[in-house]
Design a protein around this nucleic acid. Structure first.
Lengths: 234, 234
DNA sequence: CAATAATTGTGAAAAATTTCACAGTAAGGA
DNA sequence: TCCTTACTGTGAAATTTTTCACAATTATTG
């Protein structure tokens, strides 16, 4: 049991977002950044960021170098260039989260939301490969102009199997969501990001599901606002 | 300090999602449901659900009824109708999260994603009122056919102020996201749901921000998959 | 070159959250 | 009526996660 290799879920999720942020900062031409600055950008306390980062060096050295163990990622001290070097930090997080080799994904449902996702720049960046997109409407498939290969939904299982697609992004109408998810799972998908406004049930506990729900977000936001209101007055 | 009124954040977020689920189950004509069944549907352990629900009755009785205090929400025992009555449970959660009076929202950016959100059924359900949608393109504004009032982006501040809009949903291109957020905050918005692929910085800590990020979700999913892979082999 | 300022890294303490385990409750059947 | 079954509700224990506090480190300034 390589228990060491599993990160605390909150840490994993923060690192995953930090990874995205670091990429953007790099594109801005920045070289290094402090935990304090990251803290402001991410809305997470600086000590939490440092603690999260401390998980990166577990099991890095294969041999137990008794001394010099303390090789941290960041450079202490004041002045320019102090803090965490963007590039190497990003690389390290990527390695720890398994973001180094590209994953294959497919998109199911080419309504407005699907097309929005189809056109995202992320597919040009090389970390994720959108190798297929599906829709029921032949018309829709013909009208869309894109480099991503488009298929009719009836081809779903075949294509997912053939290309060993790992991640499915669900942007179908709510009525179709559960059935589509079942088909994806049946075809061997490993993870689903669900944008349809339904609560998916997936039997297999090998499949990771992330629900992205506008209604959920609205409710969470409202609840926080309500708590603010309570605090302020009675 | 009404400390009792703030829920633990994980509980708050689970209840917010549970609220959505309960609505859907009600539409299915169901009357009651057990924590076990909810557990399967939500992917959250049943005891966690029961614990979350136990926060609902804090401070319900204004007078400290020393006896009969234990008035729970759900009905124990076997047979049909046991478990939590859908309707009253949903009402109770709604009351606790402040979901009883409708909140006003606006949508900024009418690209594919914006239009997808514009057309969601949630705006017909009465809990949230989408009172305005904005875009830069006059053309776009004319072409769209919807009951939601559409405005040119230059009207943003005026409309947000006038209607005292509480929640802003950001679906603008990444380049415009930060500036738009600043304008919303300046106009007195209280919460932002950001769908643009940027990390927003909002100074005011009175404004609640929820970032919905495809890249983030993909990274989180991949990281979980990677951990699975690690577990399986060496 | 010494003092200063800004920053990391981390054990240990504190706080928050989840899990456990079981007493209590009520329907339905024997 | 009494037993069985299927639930809830919850203190207390266990676990996880966050926070704290400070020693260690290094560019920069006086």
């Amino acid at each position: 049991m390589k228990k060491d290799s599993t990160l605390p879920p909150p840490t994993l999720e923060r690192l995953a977002r930090l990874y995205v942020l670091l990429g953007k900062l790099q594109n801005l031409g920045l070289q290094a950044i402090s935990s304090k600055r990251l803290s402001e950008l991410l809305g997470v306390p600086d000590h939490t960021i440092r603690k999260d980062l401390s998980f990166l060096k577990e099991g890095q050295g294969i041999e137990p170098f008794a001394e010099k163990e303390k090789a941290g990622v960041g450079k202490p001290g004041s002045g320019v260039g102090r803090g965490y070097p963007l590039e190497s930090l990003r690389l390290l997080i990527g390695a720890r989260l398994g973001l180094t080799h590209p994953r294959t994904a497919c998109l199911v449902g080419l309504g407005n939301l699907g097309v929005a996702i189809l056109n995202r720049r992320i597919w040009q960046e090389g970390v994720y490969r959108l190798v297929a997109a599906f829709d029921l409407s032949e018309n829709r498939l013909e009208l869309l102009s894109t480099k991503i290969p488009l298929y009719h939904a009836r081809e779903l299982e075949r294509v997912v199997r053939n290309y060993r697609i790992e991640i499915g992004i669900l942007t179908v109408p709510p009525e179709a969501a559960q059935e589509t998810a079942d088909r994806l799972v049946h075809a061997g998908i490993r993870g689903i990001i669900n944008f349809a406004p339904v609560v998916l049930t997936v039997k297999s506990n090998r499949v990771v599901v992330r629900n992205v729900s506008l209604a959920g977000e609205l409710n969470i936001l409202s609840a926080y606002l309500y708590q603010q209101e309570e605090e302020t007055h009675g």
